[in-house]
Design a protein around this nucleic acid. Structure first.
Lengths: 124, 124
DNA sequence: TATTTTACTTACCAAAAGGTAACAGGTATA
DNA sequence: TATACCTGTTACCTTTTGGTAAGTAAAATA
């Protein structure tokens, strides 16, 4: 990498960002992953975390994330059916990325959305 | 933050991620920002970096990024008109986020897209 | 005068993403 | 038998996003 020309590096970065974006793309996937970083959850739990997601979108995006090997689905054969979703190692490997996304989101909000200086402390 | 309940933290994170996502959303914004981390560029330069972007999308997304205060546009009154785009401090503040995105994109490609172990070294 | 360069814009269309509302299927409880 | 719970599914529609192709404007160059 050190010996690559500037524009080669740029091309390489553009490729990597595309790979990441295709998996992350859309309104709901990041929120779903964030919800699951707070513990394994059931369908209804995730719905409660992300208040305005519809069951259609939730099940659709859960399937997509499962196909990308970022989450896994476990079915428990209990009385009312129970399904537990959790992050795979690949999902867990997104932690730093998510942290930076959140930090920047907060920074952006402080700079642009509002000039409130509250809640400026780091996450975790 | 330390004293917040787990689900309050989750709600706060979800809000922050939404703020970030609305700015970053779409196929082209991250690539444009990455292109500009490699130096200030003109319209045509960015087009050369991102080979398959159309002038319509490029100008549309540049405008959006300008409105979000992530890039700035400078018009030089030269012979054939010249416009230079650059990152604002807010744009520069995305560096760590972009780095993590790239790292994860490479990791994802190595794990899933292909099992190639080449090009595993860190960026920069 | 005609062509080139740079930086776009416009009109039109197609595809993808997302929203709404109703329904389904299996089990358990009243 | 009827109702509720849980995890979805389905049909239908609207909105957003992105693509294509052609055109524009202003100045410089041939």
């Amino acid at each position: 990498m050190t010996k690559m020309k500037n524009d080669k590096v740029c091309q390489y970065k553009l490729m990597a960002s595309r790979d990441a974006l295709t998996v992350i793309q859309g309104k709901w996937r990041i929120p779903i992953i964030i919800s699951l970083t707070h513990g394994n959850k059931r369908f209804g739990d995730i719905q409660k975390d992300i208040e305005d997601i519809s069951p259609k979108m939730l099940s659709q995006e859960l399937k997509a994330l499962e196909e990308s090997k970022i989450i896994s689905r476990k079915l428990y054969d209990s009385m009312p059916i129970m399904v537990e979703y959790s992050l795979t190692p690949l999902g867990i490997s997104m932690q730093k990325l998510l942290d930076e996304l959140l930090k920047w989101g907060i920074h952006f909000r402080n700079e642009i959305v509002g000039k409130k200086k509250t809640l400026k402390r780091q996450l975790n």
